[in-house]
Write a protein that binds this DNA or RNA. Structure first.
Lengths: 225, 225
DNA sequence: TGTGGATAAAAAATCGATTATCGTGTCTAG
DNA sequence: CTAGACACGATAATCGATTTTTTATCCACA
């Protein structure tokens, strides 16, 4: 994979961090797999130091597990973990949405509308899935952006990344996909109408349904525990 | 400062991480200060690589700010930030306490009692403040431990560290200190009585009062913004 | 057959040195 | 004078090699 070299004040370390984060969220690594540092080194064509710094950051962020003297591992996919992440997403994202609806101004309304539109118009071709994911993430971020708490946003982002590890493993369920997409539209409506209560409930349902989808993948739905 | 050279499966990197984390939380660095890497290297007697890895982790954790090509800085103390941290602490810690009261078993009750007792009996001498802080942190962690969510605990821990940067700068207010200590006792009572509602409210008040204390330090109380 | 222990191979962590970038002060053209 | 180019010392980032630790392998011996 070619990594764009040379781009302003970007350090190798942060470049490889971004790339790895994407790849981890998108499930390009086997869950539970041990990270072969020297393999990554070759694969991404970076040196050891920036690579290790990136891995350290990813571990602190929760996308890797660091074990002293025995390197890094990709966290396993675990039913309980998914339950936890989903539950917290519901708590925090609903909280944030409610606050955003209180504080958001006209500019926010415009951005929400724009983000929703871009998402709706996005190319659904399988090879463009990354692009769709990008827009989807941005839509959700835009929605809660003016919640007034930097830390809340930070936690939500983190949970999103965790959640997406599961969801992106899961097979598509066209039926549910349609519902989820429709909910995006309604979320916008409710947000613009400043219906905090309604938006909150819808967001809760939205995440619950996404959870159902995420559960479908990675054989966590089965009784394998 | 001598760092204990423990054997076992501890890496230099994680050792220096723990030490720096402590020192950052305890305000041993000037807020806003630029981290002089080579100075730390000497001061803590470690190599560059493990030191940089630790700094990267701390930045991902939120105790440092990383700016590409210009190293690391200690975050400034900022009134809005403290408001945010306190607000989130109230939301999350109350949530966790309520859940812990639901799920906690007899073993938990014992541990809460023990932790509270150790805290109460702790030496209050100024040179033993680190020890008290240790016990205080452990008490709060024990209280919410069985909340059922690993991520919730993780976030709370992170917010605690942020909060303590402010609180430990602040001057003692013996009056308030007495009230806060008394609240610890009552929190235990309410927890054992499984009075979720009451405990929640008290925890909220507890954090509000701590906030008042934290605000006192670092000249954030003044209208300097 | 299985267990313990020595040892070799592999991987992780760390070091010492090099390279790239920033910040600052100085100089010069306009 | 002043804006901009340039050079240089300081600092951050990265590299290549070395040390330390873990993991795998093999063999003696009960």
């Amino acid at each position: 994979m070619a990594i764009p070299k040379r781009k302003g004040r970007i350090t190798t370390s942060s470049r490889i961090y971004d790339t790895l984060r994407q790849d981890l969220v998108n499930g390009r690594f086997e869950a539970g797999e041990k990270v072969a540092i020297s393999a990554l080194k070759q694969q991404y064509e970076v040196g050891l130091s920036p690579l290790r710094e990136a891995l350290n950051r990813l571990a602190a962020y929760g996308l890797l597990i660091q074990e002293n003297q025995r390197g890094f591992r990709v966290p396993r996919l675990d039913r309980e973990e998914l339950d936890d992440v989903s539950g917290m997403r519901r708590e925090l994202e609903c909280m944030a949405l409610e606050r955003a609806i209180h504080h958001g101004d006209a500019e926010w309304e415009s951005e929400v509308l724009a983000a929703a539109h871009r998402l709706k118009r996005a190319d659904l071709a399988p090879e463009k899935v990354d692009e769709w994911e990008q827009l989807h993430g941005r839509f959700h971020r835009t929605l809660v952006a003016p919640c007034g708490s930097v830390w809340l946003l930070r936690f939500i982002e983190q949970l999103h990344d965790q959640f997406d590890r599961y969801r992106r493993m899961a097979p598509e369920i066209p039926e549910t996909r349609r519902v989820l997409d429709a909910q995006h539209e309604i979320l916008v409506e409710l947000a613009l109408k400043r219906d905090a209560r309604g938006a909150r409930e819808l967001m809760d349902d939205h995440i619950r349904r996404s959870y159902e989808v995420a559960l479908g993948g990675s054989s966590l739905g089965r009784v394998n525990r």
